[in-house]
């Protein structure tokens, strides 16, 4: 029973983390049809800027609670500015190209960003544990949980709601959905698709960086952390259906719970379980659970 509770909680925490990471990835794909491999690097960027900012912040001896704001601000600033650079400086010249070519392009961006991060922040690990320990722990049912992890769940729900609201209730959000459905029609309707693309990429990059920053306090920030993440994010996004935020949520839950179960019951197959689940879903529904409609063109 205790183990079940541990699995559920761990699974939820992991799922929240996965959702925050994957939401940006799936959004960018849905709108721009680009599977952004460099998403992992934005995650790392957020983690490094956030951790560095927290480190500096606490050295100034300011109010501890505010470090959260500093953390988030640093990540968003870093993510959005680099995102702007990547989108305006490179991607916008490549729209309309084959999807696989875009993977290769974003792979190039990933490689560049990985080394750029190393050059800026070095290869030694960063620790930004203060926000994590600041929130304390909760004990119940004989288990001990970090409150920071619960906050993560809260944040992911917030982000989910914000995205839902943004896409369904705001004018810009509806424009985004039109573009997701059919880029050509959207363009023919007079929608400024290029601007939509920029906004989308910035949102995706921003959320990605935010994910990194929020994760940083819970672990050590090291080179290569982005690369491990992209593989997981991809599994989540594919299970949920490329382009679907709801899909990312459901996918995150499925992967999160499966992984938590594996970690507690049979740790050796952790990564295997995630991909086995992905394989299982794809075997029955090759387009994912909540695939975005794709008009047939023959």
């Amino acid at each position: 029973m205790k183990q079940l509770l541990a699995i559920l909680v761990d699974g939820s925490v992991y799922a929240s983390w996965l959702f925050i990471i994957s939401a940006g990835l799936t959004l960018i794909y849905g709108v721009m049809r680009i599977l952004n491999m460099s998403h992992g690097s934005f995650y790392a960027l957020g983690a490094y800027s956030g951790a560095a900012m927290v480190g500096w912040y606490f050295s100034t001896g300011s109010v501890p609670w505010f470090s959260f704001v500093a953390l988030i601000a640093a990540a968003l600033v870093a993510g959005i500015s680099v995102g702007l650079l990547v989108e305006r400086g490179l991607l916008r010249f490549m729209y309309g190209r084959d999807e696989v070519v875009m993977i290769l392009v974003t792979y190039g961006v990933l490689l560049i960003m990985e080394d750029a991060i190393k050059l800026i922040w070095g290869v030694e690990p960063y620790f930004a544990y203060q926000p994590y320990t600041l929130l304390g722990r909760t004990k119940f049912a004989g288990l001990s949980f970090a409150n920071y992890d619960f906050m993560l769940i809260g944040v992911s729900i917030l982000i989910g709601l914000a995205l839902w609201y943004g896409l369904n209730r705001t004018r810009n959000g509806k424009l985004l959905r039109v573009v997701i459905h059919d880029r050509e029609i959207a363009s023919a309707l007079g929608i400024n698709v290029a601007r939509i693309f920029t906004i989308t990429f910035l949102i995706g990059a921003g959320i990605g960086s935010l994910a990194g920053a929020l994760t940083a306090p819970g672990l050590s920030v090291v080179p290569g952390m982005g690369i491990e993440v992209i593989v997981l994010a991809f599994a989540v996004v594919v299970i949920g259906g490329l382009g679907s935020i709801t899909g990312a949520l459901v996918g995150a839950l499925i992967v999160g719970m499966s992984r938590a179960a594996a970690v507690h019951l049979y740790p050796d197959v952790e990564l295997f379980v995630i991909y086995a689940v992905m394989g299982l879903v794809l075997a029955f529904r090759p387009q994912g659970l909540f695939a975005v409609a794709n008009a047939r063109k023959i």
Binding site: G108, L111, D115
Partner: peptide, 12 residues
């Protein structure tokens, strides 16, 4: 520390 970056630029 710049090998990957060089690769990235070369790829692009």
């Amino acid at each position: 520390y710049t090998w990957q970056m060089i690769l990235g630029f070369a790829l692009l």
